[in-house]
Computed example of a mutant assay.
Amino acid sequence: MIEEVFRAEHGRAVAVLVRAFGDIDVAEDAVQDAFAEAVRRWPVEGTPPSPAGWVITTARNKAIDRVRREAARAGKQAQAAMVDEGGPVEVGTVQDERLRLIFTCCHPALGLQARVALTLRLLGGLTTAEIARAFLVPEKTMAQRLVRAKGKIRDARIPYRVPEEGDLPGRLSGVLAVVYLVFNQGYGGRDELAAEAIRLGRVLHELMPDEPEVLGLLALMLLIESRKAARMVDGELVLLGEQDRGLWDRGLVREGQALVRRCLEIGRPGPYQIQAAVNAVHSAAATAGDTRWGQILRLYDQLMVVAPSPVVALNRAVAVAEVEGPGAALGLVDGLDLGRYHLFHAIRADLLRRLGRDEEAAEAYGRALERTDNPAEMTFLEKRLLSLRP
């Protein structure tokens, strides 16, 4: 129970305390102390009627005690007294506070990895060790990054607020990029990170229910997540076209498709919405053979207009292979500068295999193997390579 409350309420509590004290470290430490006290007291006294309110009030009191105890300057002492006199914190204001904290964590003055790490730490409540494992760096290194990021927020006086309406589109895109990066890291094998990204997506949707790209990102993550049980079978990777669609989570599919329909009603397409629509087409097909590849190709054409990139062009080439044949797709793939990307070589290898050019396909599978350290992907690529070179 306490762990569930921690995951759900950590970010909300930190957000309220940051608003009250203007100091991320004070807020974070106070919330940690409050949950530590919950671990001691709730099993004995029972879970309070409002766990969120209990945590926030307890954390607030602990923060006041710390500020009074440690403050050497009159300004901080006055601040503590002011907060103390303000009465109980209203939990109903939490939603807006979380939105402020998300935009603070994802301020463009911070590097992308720092944004992701701070978002996971403050909004998601992940430990420094968990975040370090996600980034494949030592815990000490990640701790230093988090300290520097919070220091930059403090020293640069990055405002704790939602951007003005005119600045919102540019800033929102950075927030969405962070959430999607967290999801992709989780989708690569860290289930808890994927779940955390979806939870953050739901928070954004709750706070900005009519923002189409927020809807699109949440739909995209839900539709991809719906296939999780079918993507890995007995520890081995299964491609989309070969998956058992009976294992797909139909509840997530329906939710994702409903969000895509809502995006269509709004009529302001963006990159996440288009990618969600691609996945919605896949999810609507009863079998791989029923997939409407022509519609997917048209969506990728639209995505190349809205957000062109070599990776989008690579994904478009996969659709071209289904509509026009592997030869047409190979010509497009060979024109891309993605030599460091393992999926570039894997897709190229598959096209060569389908064209009967087995020796070249084997070489491409070998290059893909050299560029990934994901165990499931390595096993899959090794099997494909062995099928060409018994």
Rank of each mutant, 00 (worst) to 15 (best):
E164C: 05
L204W: 11
V162T: 13
F183G: 02
Y187C: 01
N184P: 00
R199D: 15
G188F: 09
L193T: 07
L204H: 10
E165D: 14
G170Q: 07
P163A: 03
N184G: 12
I198W: 00
L181Q: 15
I198M: 12
A195K: 09
E196H: 06
E164D: 14
E192N: 12
R202K: 13
V178Q: 04
G170D: 06
R161W: 08
R199W: 14
G201P: 09
E165N: 11
A195G: 07
L181R: 15
V182W: 01
Y160F: 15
V162G: 04
V203G: 01
G189D: 00
V162I: 11
G166R: 15
G174P: 01
L176W: 06
R190Q: 11
G201I: 09
V179L: 13
A197V: 01
R161H: 08
N184E: 11
E165I: 15
A195H: 12
G189Y: 03
R202Q: 13
R161P: 00
G189S: 02
V179I: 15
F183I: 07
G201Q: 08
G170A: 03
G186F: 00
P169N: 13
R199H: 14
A194S: 13
Y160K: 04
E165A: 14
V182M: 10
N184F: 03
E165V: 15
V175K: 05
D167A: 04
D167Y: 07
Q185P: 01
V162E: 10
R190D: 12
E192T: 10
L168Y: 13
G166K: 14
L168Q: 02
L172W: 08
F183C: 07
R171S: 10
L176A: 08
A197E: 08
V175C: 11
V179E: 04
L193D: 06
Y180E: 04
Y187N: 15
Q185Y: 12
Y187M: 02
A194C: 06
A195Q: 12
A194H: 02
R202I: 02
E192P: 05
V178Y: 03
G186M: 01
V203S: 10
R199E: 15
G188L: 09
L168C: 12
R171Y: 05
Y180Q: 06
Y187H: 14
A194V: 05
V179Y: 04
G201F: 12
E164A: 13
F183W: 10
R190H: 13
Y160M: 06
E164G: 10
E196T: 15
V178M: 07
L168E: 04
